[in-house]
Nucleic acid binder design. Structure first.
Lengths: 258, 258
DNA sequence: ACGCATTTGTTCGTATGTATT
DNA sequence: TAATACATACGAACAAATGCG
């Protein structure tokens, strides 16, 4: 059995190390951490191929199988995408297939058609307490607020309010949002180097207020699905907070329990 | 390289075989199918240990690593649970840890407390068209309908209407439901041999109607979260259809996107 | 059109580590 | 302590998909 080589952060607490937890972690977990760091540091950009398993094995001085297991888990977490015969690629939000990973709204009948976007507002302001708490920044720090409406078949269905940390999103304007073709997360990734990895959502049923009712073309008091989303990047760092109001008259939010 | 032994269903379309698709599937996928069949047939009951990897390897005439990969996937799908040093066990709904796998409602503040259950109704009737379609039975076939209210801190929060195929649930009564300690799915599994594997949910915001408003102690028209759930067992066979109405005044439905 | 090199995918075998009883 | 079972790690070989010459 090969002893872990000195190039590995064996002395450093990796994934498995917590207070009271085990002070070691398997080799493949350490490799996973190293690969994640390179991802985070931008050594390989979204859409690019990472080195082959054999190359990585040589680089880290471990067997190919160990690299393989590390990549397996990263692929399961949607950080990497494997393609037989081609290589392993850094996941990107600009791909067709993965495009609707975060959009859970489905029409009651008919096919899923792509949404028309209308940006109502995009301005910088001091973070309200609730937003600051969610984004883990100081209350009063600058945030960018984006307000938009998504329509299907010319009918407004989603009203989104989006807050982004001003620090990471300098230069974001309504124009750039409108001009960009493709998903918003693809723009964030390409223009600001911010990659959404996963998100946590809180769903509630609420009554439409005056303003949102008008934008969604429903009567005030009409039931709307409220979806609060906190998006996280590497290291579970929050990078987006949004509140969506969905008109579920002709659509539903699909979820799979497993 | 060992050729697949005759005991394997190599000639039979397994997981990977579809119209136009490849007519073969990897060994570990075939093993996965075989294990799933034994699970379905009840060869090993929920909570029991299945044979060790070495035993299964001998039984199927493959290497331990191949069995391991099959079990890995079944564990990832929550059909099996691995425990180092002890064995691999058939997943069960009566375990503490897995108890809240299907309950997504969380309190806005405070800890998650266990719900008080109140069964309002349990009767047999002919399946309405919508229910029959969901359960893939004939309209008019017998179904069991259960209506219940879940309360937290003495306040009603969830109103559930549950439909079960009468065929599989002979002898289900309000008493048995009330008397049973533990999750309902554990009762289904223990008393009727029906194991929920996964479920698909459709969420909407709706206005409370007269009857449901009274049971949930809210005003008519109050926004409620409607949760339609179709529960599936082995082979994606539907075995439960339910519609829940959640009062999200002090709770939210949590979801993780990844 | 064909073959070849590259890369991931599958399968086997073996040895050792860690957790449980 | 010893036996058992899952977990990790290595190495080797072949299969399947892809892209290039």
């Amino acid at each position: 059995m090969a002893t872990p080589p000195s190039s590995l952060p064996n002395d450093m607490p990796a994934a498995g190390a917590e207070a009271g937890g085990p002070a070691f972690s398997p080799l493949y977990q350490q490799i996973k951490v190293l690969i994640t760091r390179s991802l985070q540091a931008g050594e390989w950009r979204p859409g690019e191929a990472i080195p082959s398993e054999v190359d990585l094995a040589a680089r880290f001085r471990v067997s190919q199988g160990t690299v393989r297991k590390a990549i397996d888990e990263l692929a399961a977490e949607n950080l990497l995408v494997r393609r037989q015969g081609k290589g392993t690629f850094v996941a990107t939000h600009s791909e067709e297939k993965i495009q609707y990973r975060f959009l859970r709204l489905m029409p009651d009948d008919g096919e899923l058609v792509s949404a028309q976007r209308r940006f109502i507002d995009c301005r910088r302001l001091r973070a309200p307490a609730e937003v600051a708490r969610a984004l883990q920044i100081r209350a009063g720090d600058t945030v960018v607020q984006v307000r938009r409406v998504l329509s299907f078949h010319e009918r407004p269905v989603i009203l989104d309010d989006i807050w982004l940390p001003g620090q990471e999103f300098k230069g974001l304007t309504a124009e750039r949002l409108s001009d960009y073709r493709g998903p918003m997360y693809a723009l964030f990734e390409a223009e600001f180097g911010v990659r959404m990895i996963r998100a946590e959502e809180k769903l509630r049923a609420v009554a439409a207020e005056e303003g949102s009712a008008e934008l969604l073309a429903v009567a005030p008091g009409h039931p709307l699905l409220s979806v609060e989303r906190l998006s996280l990047t590497y290291g579970d760092k929050p990078v987006e907070f949004r509140r969506g109001l969905y008109n579920t008259a002709a659509h539903y939010y699909r979820n799979e329990l497993s």
